[in-house]
Design a protein around this nucleic acid. Sequence first.
DNA 1: TATTCTATTCAGAACCTTTTGAAAGGACCG
DNA 2: CGGTCCTTTCAAAAGGTTCTGAATAGAATA
Lengths: 181, 181
Amino acid sequence: MPLTAVENARNLFIRRWGEMGASWGISRTMAELHALLYLSNEPLCTDDVMAQLSISRGNASMNLRELVNWGLIHRVHRRGDRKEYFEAEKDVWQMFETIIRERRRREVLPIVETIERCRSIVEAEKKTLPATLRRTAEEDQKRYADILEFCEVMNSIFNLVSRVGKTGVRPLAKALGKLAG
Amino acid sequence: MPLTAVENARNLFIRRWGEMGASWGISRTMAELHALLYLSNEPLCTDDVMAQLSISRGNASMNLRELVNWGLIHRVHRRGDRKEYFEAEKDVWQMFETIIRERRRREVLPIVETIERCRSIVEAEKKTLPATLRRTAEEDQKRYADILEFCEVMNSIFNLVSRVGKTGVRPLAKALGKLAG
DNA sequence: TATTCTATTCAGAACCTTTTGAAAGGACCG
DNA sequence: CGGTCCTTTCAAAAGGTTCTGAATAGAATA
């Protein structure tokens, strides 16, 4: 049975979403699964996704769990059916907020902590250093501080964007436009 | 010879930066190289980075080239020295702009193109479809449109932020504080 | 031109991630 | 209970990515 155009388009999207995920450090399959569920009008069960993506049960199970951990999909139960179904968050802005929040927690916080530690390590030694080396120490501290400041500003931008949410993004963009002159 | 605290801090930072890069889809070594050059006060040559990161010549060469392609470091030549030296962009906002611009070109544009294609594939078939299937087609189109809209808004936010960023971070942060109330 | 110094390339090795499938676990049902 | 249905786990295999180092190329010097 030939695929309909709608199905063809879905497959196209799923594959590209998978590729994009891969280049952003998310496993291809996990991203494809997410795309599949994002497009699907009703919740799908493990067997559905196994069939649609041609992957094994174990693979499906693990990646579905991981997506649940990320908060991008959730489990759905149906009366009189033992199977578990999965449904994706469909609001793109909510999706974005979830992704950023998770990545911040997993990947940004560790580097921020490390940089703060680096600063204080250098700070501690600085006093004991002769003038030439002290100069280097201060330059390093400046570099660390620059990244920390960047992180803080990005953080407020993200908080602001997520607070105003999907309804308010356009007004926000306008406000920023005014600031930018 | 024992490492100074400044050197210890550098190594700490370099390793973490590498890990972070890895989880964002950039090879660990490339990110470490970038961190090393970001911290370094003067340009380094291939042998310097080989020694400091304990990597092979080929590895150093390839990753340095890749960083040059990204626009995150540039080649520096010295009179009377055949070696090539490399120097990193030190302005964090400039760095950010470069990274986003490149990722947009490499990873966002392809998915945007694909989604536009998906939309028109569905659009073309929609007319020939009976009412029930047409409903599905329209829902799919909505999903595609939502992502495209998101990309457009993010795009303008990025443009504005990077415009403001160049002239100075502090005014932006202050303004955001006011907006956030 | 031959020599020296440096940069690049790339096949194979090493390493890391992802996937499979079978076994174990757990929940519900009769 | 024992059987059925579904999920999870995990060791081994497959598949991918990154790294090495020796060969190659190129460019400046003598």
